[in-house]
Amino acid sequence: MTDDRLTIGKRSFGSRFILGSGKYSLDLIEAAVRNAGAEIITLALRRAQTGTENILDHIPPGVTILPNTSGARNADEAVRIARLSRECGCGDFVKVEIMRDSKYLLPDNQETVRATQMLSDEGFTVLPYMYPDLNVARDLVSAGAAAVMPLGAPIGTNKGLCTKEFIRILIDEIDLPIIVDAGIGRPSQACEAMEMGCAAVMANTAVATAGDIPLMAEAFRDAISAGRKAYLSGLGMVSDRARASSPLTGFLRD
């Protein structure tokens, strides 16, 4: 288990829990990161450039910042935000988020493919947030993505793995890390995603809106770790029927 690491682009990580940083009181971010054991934290650049209480001051050193392009409505805006983030010293990692729907905040897959291509051409390590669609995922691979981040359910809903069957197809067919993003509301759902073979889980709302934020961060850490171990060890078979103790074909051994 000790060498089981998550590799994204040229970097590798010991933790498979990506923590969101929006929706929090900033004072709690440090404790949440620590208890989550998280090595990657996302950051909305639109929130990071503020003169009062900069979120960057609350992120512990050594944690990789994954800036996102939230607020972008098309690929060109996403590219400009990513460039700005690199200029701000946030590194080359970028999570592409493009939404042109203010109600459900569902990602725009077409624009996401376009932004992924432009950003990977510019040397970014691109993690695109997407609606789980196999053809789009393949296009993202061709466009140079470093991981694929399908949504489990609409962002903020805590509804869990509503898109489970489609994410399973991505896990089976795509050679990049599949990281479930959005919709994960409980540690048990994060565990389920990891058991299926997801490479990592990202959660924000579920932790940020918990009664005890650091404790919930810890619960997610444990659930993700348990799910990963279960995946690596090979889950037992599940059958809908009982196994007959005298199988019909027993006579063949007579």
């Binding site: 650049l45 450039q49 503020t50 972008a72 400009r80 700005l84």
Partner: peptide
């Protein structure tokens, strides 16, 4: 805002 356990946000948008 802070004493209500909430986070004051000064800007939620960037012009690019």
């Amino acid at each position: 805002i802070k004493s209500a356990g909430l986070q004051p946000v000064m800007s939620d948008y960037i012009y690019t």
